[in-house]
Simulated assay, not measured.
Amino acid sequence: MFRVGLAMATGAVVGVCVYAISRTGGTYLFAIAGGLAGALVAVGLDAYRRSARLTEVRVTVPQLSELTFVVNNDARQVAWQLFIESVTRVSVQRLNDDEGLLREAMTSLYGLFATTRETLKVSRPSTQVSAGLTVEALAVNFLNAELRPFLSKWHPRLRAFEETHPDRPECQWPQAAQCRADLREVQAHSREYVLAFARLAGVRDAATMLGAAAPGPARHDSPMVPHARE
């Protein structure tokens, strides 16, 4: 009731002001109109400065140690999208030796690769700065230094086994144990990248969110098929 009463009172005051302005003529009317226009411009400029404001963030990622990144609101939004796309995938959820299938894991990683690349394609490039990296640089390094080497190495080998022995289960693949070992390493590195995306996006308790994500079968929300080539 208090909020309703306050809204009614505010509306009444605004109505009186509008009526008074409409009754004003000559110089006073132009002065009032100019003041309102200036206030709107000031509000717009302030909103623009807030969205364009650059902030330095320090994060640590595999193979690159601690780096300084420069982000604004647009970059934070991109980092948030990358974090959300990654957090529930097998790329950051440990796949034990007796859990899941390597084919499902690779399909999920291919989906993450494609989604990350598409997110970067449709996003506005970060503002050029003299010092500091951008969220795009982190994402590209994630693709080229972590996902691509693993997929390029193991996808053709697993596909060759599947095509040569279509009736044999994946667990009989002689290289399955080594592939899972490499997958665990990629998962550990990917987790650090996901935490870095979270830090750039300003996500609180990102580690808790990662820990709370229930392990299970790999996500299949990508249109890419298991045998697709990059």
Rank of each mutant, 00 (worst) to 15 (best):
M1D: 11
M1L: 12
R3P: 01
G5C: 05
A7M: 10
A7W: 06
A7T: 10
T10W: 11
T10N: 10
T10H: 08
T10R: 15
T10E: 10
G11P: 06
A12D: 05
A12F: 14
A12C: 13
V13S: 14
V13Q: 05
I21W: 14
S22R: 13
S22K: 11
R23H: 15
G25Q: 12
G26Q: 11
F30K: 12
I32G: 03
G34Q: 09
L36C: 14
G38T: 09
A39W: 13
L40R: 14
D46P: 00
A47L: 13
A52W: 06
A52S: 11
R53D: 09
R53L: 12
L54D: 07
T55P: 00
E56Y: 10
E56A: 14
P62R: 03
P62Q: 05
L64S: 08
L64E: 09
L64T: 07
L67S: 08
L67K: 14
L67W: 03
V70P: 00
V70Y: 00
V71D: 04
N72Y: 03
N73P: 02
A75H: 02
A79T: 02
Q81M: 03
L82I: 11
E85V: 15
S86T: 15
Q93Y: 01
L95V: 12
G100R: 01
R103P: 00
E104M: 09
A105D: 06
M106Y: 01
M106Q: 07
S108L: 01
Y110F: 13
Y110W: 08
L112G: 02
F113Y: 14
F113M: 05
F113H: 08
A114T: 04
T115A: 11
T116W: 02
E118K: 12
T119G: 03
L120V: 12
K121L: 10
V122D: 04
R124C: 03
Q128S: 11
S130N: 13
A131M: 11
V135Y: 01
E136G: 10
A139L: 05
N141T: 13
L143W: 02
L143R: 05
N144K: 10
A145D: 14
R148H: 11
R148T: 14
P149I: 07
K153M: 12
W154L: 06
W154G: 00
W154Y: 06
R157K: 09
R159Y: 11
R159T: 15
E163L: 12
E163F: 06
E163A: 15
E163G: 03
E163H: 15
H165C: 09
P166M: 09
R168S: 11
R168C: 08
P169D: 09
E170I: 11
E170T: 00
W173Q: 02
Q175V: 07
Q178F: 10
Q178G: 06
A181R: 11
D182N: 09
Q187R: 05
A188Q: 14
A188V: 04
H189D: 05
S190W: 01
R191C: 02
V194M: 05
A196P: 00
A198N: 02
R199I: 01
R199M: 10
A201R: 01
A201F: 03
V203C: 06
R204M: 13
A206H: 04
A207W: 02
M209H: 08
G211S: 06
A212D: 07
A213Y: 03
P215N: 04
P217E: 07
A218K: 00
A218D: 01
R219C: 04
S222I: 01
S222K: 01
S222M: 04
P223T: 07
H227G: 05
A228V: 04
A228W: 03
R229N: 06
R229H: 08
